Amino acid sequence: MSALGDWAQLLRISALFTVPGDVLAGAAAAGVRPDRRTLLAIGCSLCLYEAGMVLNDWADQDEDARERPDRPLPSGRIPPAAALGAAIGFTGAAIALATRAGRPAAAVAGALAATVWAYDLKLKHTRAGALAMGAARGLDVLLGAVAAGGRPLRPAVALSSAALVAHTYAVTRVARNETTGGSGLAPVAALVTSSTIGAALASRGAGGVARSQVAGRSGWQPVRDLTAPAFAALYGITAARPYLHAALNPSPALTQRAVGGGIRALIPLQAALAARAGAPALGGALMALVPLARRLSRKVSPT
């Protein structure tokens, strides 16, 4: 593998497609249109995500040497010092981008950066680890809500944050067994979680109202926008199958597929949340990332 390929593996670049939707869903939930500050927030989020990916492997060098010796750090293809330097650099770049987006964004980015570093260096192997990962996604949503001057206290922001926190918590619990397998309880819990989230988003519909002409009448009659339920259904389908397989046979291979499926399911979940908040076009744009993420994940694993 080339040096570029080694860094792509370390950075898990196929999972990057799941990051912008956090910020965009937060902006939609806060009732604002994405602008330049939203783009800065997305850049901040991407940098912190990559900082977390690199720091994760740096902190787990001994464990990976036993269980995943082909990873870039234990194999010696990337020096640990270079990885740590990259994590620090990504974090600094993230804070700089958030600062340009304004003080509220910088404050949230600081809390997000602290959560990322605390998870990788201290909390990962504790009971608080999965909660920290979920909190990071929730803060990502809040970052999108405040960056463009939105109203972060709107109920829609709390709903979007809670959905992503719950989903990420469930995926993280499954990921604890991805190298060893042996537990079907976490995939079952994740399946229940994703099914509950998907059903809630589908049943309550979208935040906007489409308009369509009813035959035989001269006026326009409001009809329900079905984009949010459709995206919610895609979210449920994407997550359910690999979770079910891992629950029935919790082998390392199927558990890893379940984790990958949970990561890929983030995009339709973000799309459903954006559509429910009244931005179905934004949700559709996020769904366009799905085939790109799937194609790249065949070359670079997201886990």
Rank of each mutant, 00 (worst) to 15 (best):
A199R: 12
A130W: 06
L139K: 02
R151G: 13
A135C: 08
L131M: 11
P152M: 09
G134Q: 03
A163Y: 06
G150T: 09
K122V: 15
S183K: 14
P187C: 04
A147E: 00
T179F: 08
I197P: 12
G138L: 01
V192A: 11
T196H: 09
V188R: 09
T193I: 01
V157Q: 02
A130C: 05
D120S: 04
S183Y: 14
A148M: 11
G129W: 09
V165L: 08
D140H: 15
R151A: 15
P155G: 00
L142G: 00
L153F: 14
G138S: 03
T179V: 12
V141E: 00
R173A: 10
A136F: 01
L143Q: 03
S161M: 15
N177W: 15
A186R: 14
R127I: 12
T196R: 11
S161W: 09
G134L: 03
G198R: 03
N177F: 15
L153I: 12
G138Q: 00
L185V: 13
L142N: 01
A163T: 04
R176L: 14
G129Q: 08
A163L: 06
G198D: 00
L142M: 06
V171T: 01
G150Q: 11
L131N: 11
L153A: 13
R137F: 01
A162S: 04
V174F: 06
R137K: 04
G134H: 03
L143F: 08
A163M: 10
A158V: 11
T172V: 05
L185K: 13
A130R: 08
S183N: 14
H167E: 06
A186L: 10
T193L: 04
A156D: 09
L191S: 04
T126S: 14
A128L: 13
A158W: 14
V157A: 00
S195L: 13
A156C: 06
D120Y: 04
G150A: 10
T126W: 10
E178Y: 09
S160G: 08
Y169V: 12
K124H: 06
R154A: 12
M133Q: 06
N177S: 15
I197T: 07
D140K: 15
A136E: 00
P152R: 06
A135G: 08
A132K: 07
G184T: 11
S183R: 14
